[in-house]
């Protein structure tokens, strides 16, 4: 994990702060940069925007997209939408947990993969879906997972 400096967040905050309701866009950008939203960064954003600490924290914890845990290099996720559920997403989930030795939301020991499940990604015809970063894999069989993981 790279160390960050709080001042590196300033350009992002400055870009958005003039707009009304800028908090969520700022959090998106900062998370894109750091991979997660540590408490001290949340407090820094609050101070810069002149809003209560509690507002930033409550927003970060309300939305499932925001995370306070550092993330691996890649996020691997299994879609749990209806079609994927029917087509065996649960088995993929179990298999991935086993292989990476993580619980949902956790990061593998080598810091490479963070595993989670996702709401429907809208590619139901290709169910079940596994996503690594922005790459989408359709009709995934459990035995194909090893091959997918090895590509990264």
């Amino acid at each position: 994990m790279e160390k960050y400096h709080l001042r590196d967040m300033l350009p992002i905050i400055e870009e958005y702060e003039k707009k009304a309701g800028s908090l969520i866009p700022i959090l998106h950008e900062v998370q894109k940069k750091l991979g997660y939203l540590p408490k001290e960064v949340q407090e820094f954003i609050a101070e810069e925007l002149g809003i209560p600490y509690s507002q930033v924290y409550s927003v970060v914890t309300f939305y499932s997209f925001f995370t306070m845990e550092p993330k691996g290099d890649y996020t691997i996720s299994v879609c749990t939408g209806t079609a994927c559920h029917v087509k065996g997403a649960d088995e993929l989930t179990e298999e991935l947990k086993d292989r990476l030795n993580v619980e949902e939301g956790g990061t593998s020991d080598d810091g490479k993969f963070t595993f989670n499940t996702k709401r429907c990604v809208g590619a139901c015809s290709k169910a079940p879906i596994v996503m690594v970063g922005d790459d989408v894999y359709g009709k995934v069989q459990t035995e194909e997972l090893e091959d997918i993981l090895n590509r990264y």
């Binding site: 969520i24 866009p25 939305y63 499932s64 925001f66």
Partner: peptide, 10 residues
């Protein structure tokens, strides 16, 4: 028009 991106809350 401004685009706003959600953050994962149904």
């Amino acid at each position: 028009v401004e685009l706003r991106v959600g953050a994962g809350a149904f």
